[in-house]
Amino acid sequence: MISNFLNLFEDIFFNEKYSSLNFIIQKIDPRVKIFSSIALISIAILAKSILTLIILTSIIFILSIVSRIPLKIFLIRTSLIPLFTTLIALPLIFITPGNQILNLNFINITTEGVHKALIFILRVWTCVNSLILLTLTTKFSNIINAMEKLKIPKIFTVMISITYRFIFLSINEAYRMLLAKESRTFKKESRLKEIKTLASMLSTLFIRSYERGERVYLAMMARGYNGSVNNLEKMSINRRDVVFILIVLFICIIALSSEYFLGVS
């Protein structure tokens, strides 16, 4: 069961299957993609009407379909946070004063409340969608490369790339330990005992990671590591990227102006 979970986990979160495809969105320069996701998220944060948010989300969905990401994978990856948001937004339906739709003895449901909650959930969903589209269509090494080109300090980019390589190994190790513990536990233990076991597992993990770090360093040294990691892939901004960014900016300007000048709501 745990190994199933691990496979699923690897499949969903660390899969580069879709980022190594070669469709429109994947071909666009990572720097341009990072910039456009930031722009789309900012617009979603500024948006005040449901209509704008729906249009933004559908644009992102169209982009994900165009880049051949299976809808199921996309939805699984984007629905986690909005589900949590729904829980937070639920009380709003009942506590917001205003026009009542449904009035039971204790429960009032108002249109204003429903509207508020809907906007809140939609906004978060739009933001998550645009972020996940970026990570699903861009290879990890390309994101790191783009960050280097954008003058993010070297220590961050080097550490992120090494950390990323070892995350799955660490998670695997942690789950092997949990599995070993589960298989030796027959009755429910007290809370303190459980925290104690967890702490000893974590310190073992810590020591193992420390030793692995030393081994990794030696292995890297043996292969000529001199304190920096170089990426050989060249990046260049061509006409396609310029067109893409112009379209994104156009969408943003339309969305903003319809919100603030025409008062669409």
Partner: peptide, 11 residues
Amino acid sequence: QVPLMATLTAM
């Protein structure tokens, strides 16, 4: 210490 910090971060 860079690889070391990285493996600890992963942990």
